[in-house]
């Protein structure tokens, strides 16, 4: 998506705000700029954070950093699960599930 297409897809978003977010690297489109699906989703998230949740602009980097770490961790867990499903037998996966259940109690 181009810059104009993003502005059209997210109604009510002022262009200078989008430019500011890109300048601050809160949103990181490819050269062009071309916005990928994840960039547009992130723009929408920033609208929610700043408008709906009234998070101060100075606090946004903290929130983004924590969110990025949260999604790093979830992505890793997902990869880990996929790797486990590739190498572990059904019995081993069942044993693992049981162990995790007990450990998290």
């Amino acid at each position: 998506m181009t810059r104009d297409e993003v502005l059209h897809a997210v109604p009510g978003l002022p262009a200078e705000r989008l430019d500011l977010w890109v300048a601050r690297a809160w949103v990181r489109p490819d050269e062009g700029p071309i916005f990928a699906d994840i960039d547009v989703a992130r723009v929408r998230l920033l609208v929610v954070l700043q408008d709906d949740m009234e998070i101060e602009p100075t606090s946004v980097p903290v929130v983004l950093s924590l969110l990025d770490q949260l999604y790093d961790a979830r992505r890793q867990m997902r990869l880990f699960r996929e790797a486990l499903e590739t190498v572990a037998t059904a019995d081993q996966r069942a044993a693992m599930a049981e162990l995790l259940r007990r450990l998290s109690r």
């Binding site: 994840i38 989703a41 929408r44 990025d68 999604y71 992505r75």
Partner: peptide, 21 residues
């Protein structure tokens, strides 16, 4: 519209990997 969470958890989410990784 598609949620950020569904995007960020897919492989493409690496674009916003926390700095330091």
């Amino acid at each position: 519209p598609p949620r950020y969470s569904s995007q960020a958890e897919a492989a493409g989410g690496r674009r916003y990997q926390a700095s330091g990784a």
